[in-house]
Amino acid sequence: MTIEDIGPKPHAFDIETATRKNENYRTTVWTGKYLQVTLMSIEPGSSIGLEKHPDTDQFLRIDAGEGKCVMGDSEDDLDFEQAVSDGWSIQVPAGKWHDVINTGDEPLRLYTIYAPVHHAQGIIHKTAEDSERDEENGVDVPPEWTVQPDSSSEDEHA
């Protein structure tokens, strides 16, 4: 199943099937003016990576696999911890450090919704390393036509 990110146009697709079939670390499937939908696949023993989005609320839903979600006010104080699996959702408030770790023996398949838009339209990252490289090189940036916060705060990664 291939889904093309057509930008801020009406769109509908079977998100559960698309999420379960996604083999990329991140696949951006819809970019609107105010929010964005991406599919993710996290290998056993790996994680999304501890990070904080100062101006971005995030919603994640697990569609396959088992994991653990951690959150907190600092990277050294992750006082929220929850086991998650198929059907669970995770809500990350802007400004919270967070990570989702695959604790199972199969890929953890999930989708995430960012508000505001967080990634380049249609970008696909096969691996977490590809994602980090594109972010560092300024390739993975939201389109100019999206509404972004006035804040100059940058995302942080542990």
Rank of each mutant, 00 (worst) to 15 (best):
2 T>H: 09
2 T>Y: 05
3 I>L: 11
4 E>C: 03
5 D>Y: 03
7 G>R: 04
7 G>D: 02
8 P>G: 04
9 K>Y: 12
9 K>A: 12
12 A>R: 13
12 A>L: 10
13 F>H: 05
13 F>G: 06
15 I>E: 04
16 E>L: 07
18 A>F: 04
19 T>R: 03
19 T>A: 14
20 R>E: 00
22 N>L: 07
25 Y>E: 03
26 R>M: 14
27 T>A: 14
30 W>G: 01
33 K>E: 14
34 Y>Q: 11
35 L>Y: 10
36 Q>I: 08
36 Q>S: 07
39 L>P: 01
41 S>V: 07
45 G>C: 05
47 S>Q: 12
51 E>I: 09
51 E>G: 09
56 T>D: 12
56 T>H: 12
58 Q>R: 14
59 F>V: 15
62 I>E: 01
62 I>Y: 05
67 G>P: 02
68 K>T: 12
69 C>K: 07
69 C>W: 12
74 S>G: 15
80 F>R: 12
82 Q>K: 15
85 S>C: 11
86 D>N: 12
87 G>F: 09
87 G>N: 10
89 S>L: 11
89 S>H: 13
89 S>V: 14
89 S>K: 07
90 I>C: 15
92 V>A: 10
93 P>V: 13
93 P>G: 14
93 P>I: 10
94 A>I: 08
97 W>H: 10
100 V>T: 14
101 I>T: 12
101 I>G: 01
102 N>Y: 01
102 N>R: 00
103 T>N: 00
105 D>I: 01
105 D>V: 00
105 D>E: 10
105 D>K: 01
108 L>Q: 00
109 R>I: 04
112 T>Y: 03
113 I>M: 15
113 I>V: 15
125 H>W: 05
129 E>P: 09
130 D>M: 09
132 E>V: 13
134 D>I: 11
135 E>A: 13
136 E>G: 06
137 N>L: 14
137 N>K: 15
138 G>V: 13
142 P>K: 00
142 P>Q: 02
143 P>L: 00
146 T>F: 02
148 Q>S: 03
148 Q>H: 00
151 S>Q: 02
152 S>Y: 02
155 D>H: 10
156 E>F: 08
157 H>D: 12
